[in-house]
Every structure is written in structure tokens, then in C-alpha cells.
Amino acid sequence: MAAGDSGGLGGYDFRYLPQKTFQCLSTPETTSRLRQWSMLGRIQAQAFGFDQNFQAHRKDDFVMAFFKDPNVIANLKLLSDSSGQWITLGTEVKKIEAINIPCTQISMSFFNRLYSEDIVRDSGHIVKCFDSFCDPFLISDELRKVLLVEDSEKYAIFSQPDREEFLFCLFKHLCLGGALCQYEDVLNPYLETTKLLYKDLVSVRKIPQTKKIQITSSVFKVTAYGSVGMCYPSTKSHEQTFSYFIVDPIRRHVHVLYHCYGVGEMS
């Protein structure tokens, strides 16, 4: 994916939408789970509106315009590597990378293969295995093995296109958690939280002729660079530090899902 620069920003203006709340991250049950997974206070969802038609083939211009907009600069949150506190961007973005993330799945049956392939028992309990490491993650069950170990026996139950799907990405991020993650013994908390997050972030419509549900959102995994290197979502690269932009071209909203891997809850 080619990185964008500051030329040809397409005339987008953005506005922060603080009234948009993401219930998926604030219910007592989800809060408890995120604390257990060492993600509470380190994961954030924000909403912004924009004023022009979104064109997927010009996503680089869209993302660069986003980072240049004063309303974004003043309100987009990230965690400071130095202080560990929530801050706003405060850095001029010189270059961006926006990777297309497929978003086509409309059913959690996508994960049924975890049962049929004996990764998870019929009771919902995740099958354990001998401890091993896939740096920096401890692998103590078959679920994390399927997620991380490419030469494991059942890694192929999810194809590469499956693994690129936004639904799978969310599920994997929640399963791996933060730096002090306490893993679940059963699958359901991961599935429930993934479903809530997906439904809150992704927009759909029903096609009148067929009555089928169609996803209308476009999803990108976004990284931004300043004059001295990567500045967003962090200055330190990690698989569990990420920012996804979920663009609703009909409502003209962009949802930003952010997480920074690290130790401790941030207020």
C-alpha cells in the first residue's frame, strides 16, 4: 500500500462528535472483561463527521486530510509513550499508511469452526496445551495457537483471507489482550465482546430487493508518521497497538478504534 503525503487532500472538513457513545466499551460486563484482559483504559473509540462524499479509491487523501484537520488535531486521543497519559496528537503528520481491511462478515457463525475443529469443547471451554511462547505472548491453549502459530496443526482452519477480515482482527485483538492479560478459560466472553464491538463500529443496510444485510462501512488500519518517525497510534510498533478507521460513507461518519499495548490502566 502506497503511503500518502500532504498533497491533494480533497477538501474534507471534519468535526468531532463527542455525543456519539460506544456502549460496547462502557457496559459493566465489558469493562470487567477489558480489565481482566489488561485493555481497560488503553482502548478508545471516537467518532468524527466529515462533509464530502467518501471515495474508497482516494482513502489516502481522506486519511491525510483527517490528520491535518484542526478539529482532529484538538480531539484525537492517543496514549503518550513518555507519560502514559491520554493526550491529543500534537504532531504534524507528514505521511500516512492506510491498509484496506476487508469487512464482509455478517454472522458470528464465522467462528463455529473453533468447535468443529476441537479448539473449543462443546461446553465452551477452550482446550489447553503445553505452554510455549510466541514472543511476547504465552500460548497455553489451542485458541492462541490457532491465532499465532503458523506451523501449528490447525492454523489453516482460518485461511489468509479469513484472517484479514475485520471481524477476525477484532476477535484476535481481544483474545491476545494487553501486557498483563488474564486469559479466559471459555470462548463466550471473547465472542460476545467481539460481536458488541463489531455492531457498534460497523454500519449495515438491508437491500430492499433481496432483504439481505449488506455492510456499508470501509475499514482501514492506519499509521501516521511525523518528521522523526511513527507518531500514531504510538511511536513504538506492536501487534496489539493499533488504530482502525471505520468509515460510513452514507452517514459521513468515521469511527476510530484505538488501542495501545502496555502495562496499567489509564484514566
Rank of each mutant, 00 (worst) to 15 (best):
Asp141Cys: 09
Glu142Tyr: 15
Asp135Leu: 08
Val186Trp: 00
Cys169Trp: 03
Leu143Thr: 12
Gly177Thr: 05
Phe137Gln: 05
Leu174Phe: 07
Thr193Phe: 01
Lys172Ser: 13
Asp141Arg: 00
Leu147Ala: 00
Asp151Pro: 09
Leu176Thr: 12
Ile139Phe: 07
Val149Asp: 14
Val146Lys: 02
Leu143Gly: 08
Gly177Ile: 11
Leu148Arg: 03
Val149Tyr: 14
Ser152Glu: 11
Leu143Val: 09
Glu150Ser: 09
Ile139Thr: 02
Phe166Gly: 07
Lys172Ile: 03
Tyr183Trp: 02
Phe171His: 02
His173Asn: 15
Phe158Trp: 13
Tyr183His: 08
Leu148Thr: 11
Leu196Asn: 03
His173Met: 14
Leu143Asn: 04
Val146Cys: 07
Phe137Glu: 11
Cys169Thr: 06
Ser159Met: 04
Glu150Met: 07
Glu192Cys: 10
Pro161Ile: 10
Asp185Thr: 15
Val146Tyr: 06
Glu184Met: 07
Asn188Ser: 15
Glu164Ala: 08
Glu165Pro: 02
Phe137Ile: 12
Asp141Ile: 08
Glu165Ser: 11
Leu143Ser: 07
Cys181Met: 02
Lys195Asn: 02
Ser152Gln: 11
Pro161Glu: 05
Glu165Gln: 12
Phe166Cys: 08
Pro189Ser: 08
Leu196Tyr: 01
Tyr155Met: 02
His173Gly: 08
Lys195Phe: 03
Asp141Met: 05
Glu142Gly: 04
Gly178Tyr: 01
Glu184Thr: 09
Val149Leu: 14
Leu148Gly: 13
Asp135Cys: 09
Val146Leu: 03
Leu147Val: 08
Leu138Gly: 11
Glu164Tyr: 10
Glu150Gln: 08
Cys181Thr: 14
Phe137Leu: 08
Leu176Ala: 01
Leu191Ala: 05
Leu176Gln: 03
Asp162Leu: 04
Gln182Met: 11
Leu138Phe: 13
Ser159Arg: 08
Leu167Arg: 07
Gln160Thr: 10
Cys134Gly: 05
Cys169Gln: 15
Pro161Phe: 14
Leu180Cys: 15
Phe137Pro: 01
Ile139Asn: 02
Leu191Arg: 04
Leu191Trp: 00
Ala156Ile: 10
Arg144Lys: 12
Lys154Ala: 08
Asp162Trp: 13
Glu164Asp: 12
Gly177Arg: 01
Glu153Cys: 09
Asp162Ile: 04
Ala179Ile: 14
Asp135Phe: 09
Leu167Gln: 07
Leu138Cys: 11
Glu153Arg: 09
Gly177Ser: 07
Lys145Ala: 13
Ile139Arg: 01
Cys169Tyr: 08
Phe137Thr: 12
Phe171Cys: 03
Ser140Gln: 15
Glu142Thr: 09
Leu138Asp: 09
Lys172Tyr: 05
Leu196Met: 06
Leu174Gly: 07
Leu196Lys: 02
Pro136Glu: 06
Gly178Lys: 06
Phe171Ser: 02
Ala179Asp: 15
Leu138Tyr: 13
Ser140Glu: 15
Glu184Gly: 04
Ala156Phe: 13
Glu150Trp: 06
Glu150Ile: 12
Ser159Ala: 09
Leu196Ser: 07
Gly177Gln: 03
Cys181Leu: 00
Ser159Lys: 04
Ser152Asp: 12
Cys169Ala: 11
Ser152Thr: 11
Asp135Glu: 14
Ser159Val: 10
Phe137Val: 15
Phe166Met: 04
Glu184Ile: 11
Ala156Val: 10
Gln160Asp: 04
Ala179Trp: 06
Tyr155Asp: 00
Thr194Cys: 05
Asn188Met: 15
Arg163Phe: 09
Leu174Ser: 04
Leu176His: 03
Leu176Asn: 03
